[in-house]
Design a protein around this nucleic acid. Sequence first.
DNA 1: CTGGGGAGGGGGCCC
DNA 2: CGGGCCCCCTCCCCA
Length: 736
Amino acid sequence: MTFPEADILLKSGECAGQTMLDTMEAPGHSRQLLLQLNNQRTKGFLCDVIIVVQNALFRAHKNVLAASSAYLKSLVVHDNLLNLDHDMVSPAVFRLVLDFIYTGRLADGAEAAAAAAVAPGAEPSLGAVLAAASYLQIPDLVALCKKRLKRHGKYCHLRGGGSGGGGYAPYGRPGRGLRAATPVIQACYSSPAGPPPPPSSEPPSGPEAAVNTHCAELYASGPGPATALCIPERRCSPLCGLDLSKKSPPGSAASERPLSERELPPRPDSPPSAGPATYKEPPLTLPPLPPLPPLPFQKLEEAIPPPDPFRGSGGSPGPEHPGRPDGPSLLYRWMKHEPGLGSYGDELGRERGSPSERCEERGGDVAASPGGPPLGLVPPPRYPGSLDGPGAGGDGDDYKSSSEETGSSEDPSPPGGHLEGYPCPHLAYGEPESFGDNLYVCIPCGKGFPSSEQLNAHVEAHVEEEEALYGRAEAAEVAAGAAGLGPPFGGGGDKVAGAPGGLGELLRPYRCASCDKSYKDPATLRQHEKTHWLTRPYPCTICGKKFTQRGTMTRHMRSHLGLKPFACDACGMRFTRQYRLTEHMRIHSGEKPYECQVCGGKFAQQRNLISHMKMHAVGGAAGAAGALAGLGGIPGVPGPDGKGKLDFPEGVFAVARLTAEQLSLKQQDKAAAAELLAQTTHFLHDPKVALESLYPLAKFTAELGLSPDKAAEVLSQGAHLAAGPDGRTIDRFSPT
DNA sequence: CTGGGGAGGGGGCCC
DNA sequence: CGGGCCCCCTCCCCA
């Protein structure tokens, strides 16, 4: 629906409707529709496209964009994420443009300034908006701008661009003042009075007053201090700081290319080429993005760069965006600065009913302490302002689109409300009734503490409990694998490489107290030890899922945001990880380096070979189980002579050995061999059978030369099975 | 309908 | 902190 069409509908509904009752049009339908759409945009509901403008993100609906802008229409067909040239459209200008698209109104200069939360003199000029409208091919907005400029006697043609006559900034740039002075985090209305005044020309009333036109953006931060965030007014979903500056297009920063090359919609029919002149942006193949909940201010580690499929190794992250002083180092300060996150604090403050806590500068950034948070130390849980989107299911996999009702205006659920069907994210933290001043919350028990030190001390108690707990469990498991089985490797009885006095200890001197794994350096050990913590220190700020490693969490965040920096040269498919791309490229090259030694099947991906091998092994083991039940033999698994069938447990072991051997002998993956062995042991449900299979397995793991850890793991599994449900100790079954 | 293969994607974890 | 690998789940396609 274009706006002229909307106007026609409006007129027909409101005026001509009286004489054209036959049309049976609901008066104001189009207006209501637009209001609904804008309302949904502000909530991120059903938004299926993200527009990246410089370092700001905007969410919107493809249909609406396509209906309003010929240029955007050409883009949204192919992509779920659009990267606009910020030389042509600045974030502040695009915000106005987007507002216009969704409201049909163009804020005047004062409003623009308010919207940008910058000095009045630095607002996006009408000329900038006009230039952007022209660039984006929004005729209605162009006409409106021209009309207004003429009214002010400022209009002149922009042809030739660049210098921008008539007193307005060239090509969408709102002027240096704006760009420099608009740390977008300030773009959120900081005034406690609420959102900026509605367009003065037509002050909305009634339902329109509820329309927030500025809240669907995800704003990147400028250099401004994260801790100085002002809290957006409640009705305004927090502007979200997704800094895209860190990984600007790997070697492909949009700004490095001529506009004609980097902004044109992809041409799927054009063959890939290595020449920059024929560069084509591979079409995004992202699945439709789920409606993102309003995000807290946060800076992402990675942006989605305009892919440069023809440069570098599969789009490995390029250098930091030049000219941005707030590089990656700042990114994590943002992530770490959760206590200062406006939206977090905002929401928490509101939920605590403590307005005084708004706009407060939060200190004591625990998570920002070097080396990550202390044990279990997590800043007070703060969630995105209005969780209209998915809540914290505790499992990111459960992240789903919010339901229709939650996004519709019929459900004016409070911005701080939670989605029905989604667990309250605060509960994921075990939120206590009230933290009061106790901003440092122990996740496992939900107790709050006024200082990080006190929380730290409290957490220590948890840790001791955990260590005791894990120590016993792990010791039992280790004992099972080690105690009576004899040395599977010629290690003189040392179960693992890290055994005292052994070579392993020299190579990997840092041993985990909980599980006996050993590492080359203390950092890795520290990292590993976190896997034993009950408290996962790195929560996803979107869904609340918690992780033991920060990197895993940020990687997870990428999946929320559809950030896929690694693009395939050949097909444009994008991936969140380099490794995925490497795997994927084998599809195009036809390379299938993984071969099944049983059937000769070849596979492009190792995991599929392993899966395939499991099929072989499981089939044999299942057959063996059948044999145990009196069915006889292992269907499809030849015996040593290649003809007959094997009896259990010999059959089980033979299958395990066969499959493991195939992997191991090819030196492709001893771990995979171990995995197969371990899988096989799962079928040894009968302790007696397990015992009978155990020693051959132990010997075989040694023959395979598996890593000590893997071998121990395999053996311990078998040992557990052999120990049986009555918990007999394994040493009774030690081979002689 | 089912099994197997291909492939996308997420999390864990070590380097 | 990113890269790389492993493991798992899942979906889709096809025979």
